[in-house]
Structures are given as C-alpha cells and as structure tokens.
Nucleic acid binder design. Structure first.
Lengths: 212, 212
DNA sequence: CGTCTATTTGAATGTACTCAAAAGCGGTGG
DNA sequence: CCACCGCTTTTGAGTACATTCAAATAGACG
C-alpha cells in the first residue's frame, strides 16, 4: 500500500515510490533494456490503488489498460445468465491482468475485473502500449512472449478441464499456485475450477480424511 | 492435393504450385508486405502433404514447425493416463496449428498432431521464424496478433466450459464452426467438447426430437 | 458382400449440483 | 470482553447431468 500512502499526501508518485523494480524485472526476463528505454517505459505507467471489492473494469466497458500487479490480488470473471460468477483468472504480485479481448479489439469487455484484496497496480494504456511498440520495438517481442506464455498456460488449463476430475484439478491447482489459496477465498477457487463451493468443500473434506 | 501431385513427380514446388495466395492473404490481414518481403517469407516455407491418420507431431518430440493448413483438416490432442484422447484444437483451411508450448520452449511436446483428412500444409520452422523476425520485424507483430487472437478464443472456450452444459457447448460449437462437423468425425467433436461420444449422440438425438 | 469403424440406444452407475441448514470466523459495537 | 452480524465454509439429503459398459445399427470401403 505504499502508493496509496503517497496518494493520500497528494504527492506525484516518483519512480522510487512506484516500486518499478518489480515490473522492470518482469520485463527484463525476456528483453534487455537500457536506462533510457526503462525510463521511457516507466513514464508510460500509471500507478493505481484499489481497495478490496473495487471493480476496476466492468463488463460492457472498454478495457483501456493492462494492469501489472505490484501487490494484492485481483480476479477476472464473467457472470452467466443465471447470475453465477465464473473466474477466468487470478492475478497476484508480478502478474498482468486485462480483458484481452476488449483491450485489443477496443470493444466492450466480456470480463469484469475486481480486487480481491487491497491492491497496487501499474496501468499501461492501450495508447501508451502502441507508443511503446513504435519507440521501442523490442516490446513487441516482450508482449508476444507474455501472450505466448499465457496461451500455453490457458491451453494446459483447458486440457486439464477436459481430462481431469474436480479433485485432480484442485490438487493440480494448489500445486501450481501454492500461494493463491492463502489470499483468495475458497469459493473463488471453486469458481476458477468450474465447480460449486459446496463441492470443493466436500473434496477438501475427503482429502483431509484420506491424509489422516 | 496439388502439392502431393508435384511431390510424386519429384519436382521442386514453386510458388504457384504452393498456393501461396492463401497464406499471404492470411498474413496481410494484419500487416502489409512488399514483393520482396512476401518472396522472402514464402522462401522460408516448406510444403508438405499428409495422408489421413498421419501423425505429424508425436507427443514427446520437439515441435519444430508451425503448420499452416492449405487444405484438409488436422487435430491436436493429448492422451490421458486412461488412454483417452482429448482434442485441444482442430485446424482446417486457413488455420495455423502447432504445439505452442513445445514450439516456443524447444521442449518435448505434450500434444500429438494428426491429420483427420488428407491435408496440404505449409511448414514454418522455428529457426526460419526467428530469421523472419530478424529480417522483417513486422512479423513479430503478425504473430503477436495471431497469438492474441488464439488466446482470446481459448479464454472464450474456457469460460464456455466453466459455465455451459454439454448441450449448450455443442450448440455453440456448431454455430461458431459450422464447417467443422462435416469434415470431422463426431467422436472427435465430443472429445473437443469434453464429453463422451455416447453422450454427444444422445444430445443430438434429443435436439433432433425437440426440433421435430 | 463382408469387414471395420462410427454412431446410436439402453440400463446401471458415478460425479457433481441444488437446496437447506448448521457451524465457523472475523469484525464491530455495546 | 462478549454478543451479534454478515459472510464463508461445512454437512447432508435428494436430484440431475454425464459416464460406463454392452449390444444393436448404420456407414464406408475394399
């Protein structure tokens, strides 16, 4: 909540306040940047603080930004015709989140994005991203790689959904994302796995009994 | 099967034989190319003909190429521990197919890719793709967009799987890909939808009776 | 025409869901 | 500090959706 603190004092956030280290490290995993490029990139970001339950993007609006999570946790989800929430993705520290469809097509978002916990994010607007592509073409590569990885992860998840039981999917989830269960309510995890909260509870009961 | 014909005669396929129009049109939907760039791109492609049931990529091997389908139909799938096949994607005319994970990581493929019908494809090797990125950076953009679209489609499918019944998923599928049911056996569609062939048959029976 | 594979049909079963109610768990105020 | 509130999780009984297994039909190809 560092950024929030400076916001309250009504100071312009500076680089040091923004905790740019994390995002630069994230980018430099895939491309190398010199000082000027780093500074330019950082200058395009807008820090933002979200309180728990704050809806950052409402389905129906155009998603104008990609958000990089510095701290906290967000979720993206759809609401079906019966009013049920289905979580497409979580994003915690060091992850990006957006309604990809809306962001790239400039059409109304299908997803709603909401803070699960108080969160600090850095926003990169679509316009700034295009600017970035023009001035520092390396970023085409960075975001291509980012999306490639997202696609692969998504495909894995799809295969998982097609081939595994709810129990196996849950076990796989807590193994792959051990940090998430601690910061996300259980019924959200059920939604992500595509099962009801009641059933997830029963699975957990069964597993606990099995272990004992 | 034009390419196959020339292969039999042992002639080097030329541009005109390769039906490059389709792939160039596919590329030029997103980036514009001059003659030299087009020719260079085409020079990096390798035409290949696959008979029905031919396994083009075996899980465990490294996926060295992306395949663009000129004609025919392919599927990518995994086999689970119980020996059941789960189809991740189909590819017909004007689509790309690869084991994305293996292709970008150079690690053993998770997916097997197989021709469902006799097919003609154009292969772009990983090395040639890197070459292409170097010489014609616009292609970074093209493949980024391609993957963005693939990611969005995948996310949609995931949401669909989380939120809809098998019947709704089937209806959605035949609406979205009306051309596929005619060239793909029904049990493959069941596998894609994540249900058993028997159950898909029952759904179809129910729908037919409903309509009448 | 016979063989092989794909699809359909039916009965029994299992996995996951619905609905309802109870128990747990922070917070907040008296 | 305890009592109460709202929200999440657990538990249980009954139900629905989808699977398994087995057998019958239908289609495709030599």
């Amino acid at each position: 909540m560092v950024i929030a603190f400076f916001k309250i004092l009504n100071l312009e956030p500076t680089e040091s306040m923004m905790n740019t280290e994390l995002i630069l490290k994230n980018v430099c995993k895939h491309i190398s940047l010199d000082k000027v490029e780093k500074d330019f990139f950082i200058s395009l970001l807008e820090p933002k603080t979200l309180r728990r339950k704050k809806i950052y993007l409402q389905a129906g609006e155009v998603c104008r930004n990609s958000a990089f999570v510095i701290d906290g946790a967000l979720k993206s989800y759809t609401i079906d015709k019966e009013g049920k929430e289905h979580i497409l993705s979580f994003a915690t520290k060091d992850w990006w989140i957006a309604d990809m469809y809306s962001y790239i097509s400039r059409k109304p978002a299908i997803l709603t994005i909401e803070a699960i916990a108080d969160s600090d994010v850095l926003l990169l607007s679509y316009e700034n991203q295009q600017l970035l592509y023009d001035k520092v073409p390396k970023f085409e590569r960075f975001f291509r790689i980012l999306i490639e990885n997202a696609l692969v992860a998504n495909q894995q998840r799809l295969i998982d959904n097609l081939s595994s039981s709810a129990e196996d999917r849950y076990l796989h989830f807590i193994k792959k994302y051990p940090s998430i269960p601690s910061c996300v309510p259980q019924h959200n995890i059920a939604s992500y796995l595509g099962i009801t909260p009641e059933f997830l509870s029963k699975i957990r009961g069964r597993l606990a009994r099995k272990k004992a």
